[in-house]
Design a protein around this nucleic acid. Structure first.
Lengths: 221, 221
DNA sequence: CGGCGTCTGTCAGCGATCTGTCAGGTTGGG
DNA sequence: CCCAACCTGACAGATCGCTGACAGACGCCG
């Protein structure tokens, strides 16, 4: 899950990044409005956390431009003053959720998860597929009730496949979402992770369609 | 836009109904938890506004049960006390948005609209032509309901013809699209692929107009 | 600081599958 | 009738995905 944090205050930005990273997101951040506008337009994020109080370019304008350009990713808006008229403005501009400062990191994380979940079309933080179960809150995967011990990277891959269970996910997409675009990784890196995952969960769990990509299937299918 | 308001206080319930009706929704309401549970499970709403403080049955339990039953409609949760831990609980249970009382009706309406808007954004990636069906999500093609096993290249060709079903596509265009411009492939490469496709799907599916190119047609036309 | 264990990307080799090429055959228009 | 366009089967080289081995990176702890 790739998330972009747009926030000018370096300290808050770092805090947000840390919290989201700890929650299993791949967090990138940016403090400049124009850069944010560009990256939101060109890159593929699962979520954007957007502070409205930016110095260079108004957050609402950025959001509006994204929407005008047809970008539909979930956007969680942060703002310092919590008047309801401002909330309405944010939502009308195309925000998916709204969080007034000050807020608890736990709440931000919960809302971030909810947005990603909702975007994926699922209602609950706990999802099951076959005898597999993914708990987004605890970042745990269980199989037949038994916990599967996964590394952070492995979990992110499984979680991504889980959220896109109805599709075959191209390797390029996995590369984009597991690592930032700046990092150049070999396709083989994904293959290595897949191999390790299959060793842990059984070869049947993750399927591959040559030339297309990977997909998840319950082991009891 | 059909919306269900679940709220035990008759006055608030009426206010909500009025505001939503004025906003263009078709509002139904209900004050009892068990009835709400049933209607949410069996009826088809575009949105549900759910008060957590119900006498008979806890709102969170209702929500959780809906989600467990696979009901994915947007749910906007209302609650009296606005502690952040409660919000987290609501969101974790599968709420799509959260509004603490007291709130302004304008904000509720704005959020309701946003939720419905977002849920409507699920454009279908499935196209049909004759007895052929192309699922862009799964990157799969079915014929008369039966899946056709295609390689990546074959799929790309079919998908391209599908997207340009209304015209005859020149071979040069297919070459350009299937391979990068830099790669020099023989026209015969395309012909080979076409042959393989016809063998898999039946010769009638892909037509050719001598000197012009290829086109797709449903096999039952 | 140094040692230790874990995580993870890279490399190389292997099968299996895919797919472009070639060498014909077939068709259709002029 | 002739030529170009198209079809097709066979085949070999290319590609893709899988895996084991390895080493650099990182964090942890004494």
């Amino acid at each position: 899950m790739r998330v972009l944090v747009v926030e000018d205050d370096p300290i808050i930005r770092a805090d947000l990044g840390d919290a989201l990273t700890a929650a299993g997101f791949l967090a990138e951040s940016c403090g400049d409005g124009n850069e944010a506008l560009f990256r939101g337009d060109t890159e593929d994020y699962d979520l954007i956390v957007l502070d409205l109080g930016l110095p260079s370019l108004d957050g609402l304008s950025i959001l509006r431009q994204w929407r005008d350009n047809g970008r539909g990713m979930p956007v969680l808006v942060l703002t310092a003053r919590g008047t309801w008229s401002e909330r309405v403005a944010g939502i009308e501009a195309g925000a998916d959720d709204y969080l007034p400062k000050p807020f608890h990191m736990e709440e931000l994380v919960a809302r971030a998860r909810a947005l990603v979940r909702r975007a994926a079309g699922h209602g609950s933080a706990i999802q099951t597929l076959g005898d597999l179960r993914l708990d987004a809150n605890q970042m745990r995967v269980t199989q037949r009730g038994k916990p599967v011990s996964l590394t952070a990277l492995e979990y992110r891959l499984v979680a991504y496949l889980f959220h896109h269970r109805d599709r075959t996910v191209p390797v390029t997409e996995l590369l984009e979402h597991l690592y930032g675009d700046d990092e150049s990784r070999d396709v083989n890196a994904i293959e290595a992770v897949i191999t390790r995952l299959r060793r842990k969960m059984g070869a049947e769990v993750i399927g591959n369609r040559r030339g297309f990509g990977y997909y998840l299937r319950g082991t009891d299918e």
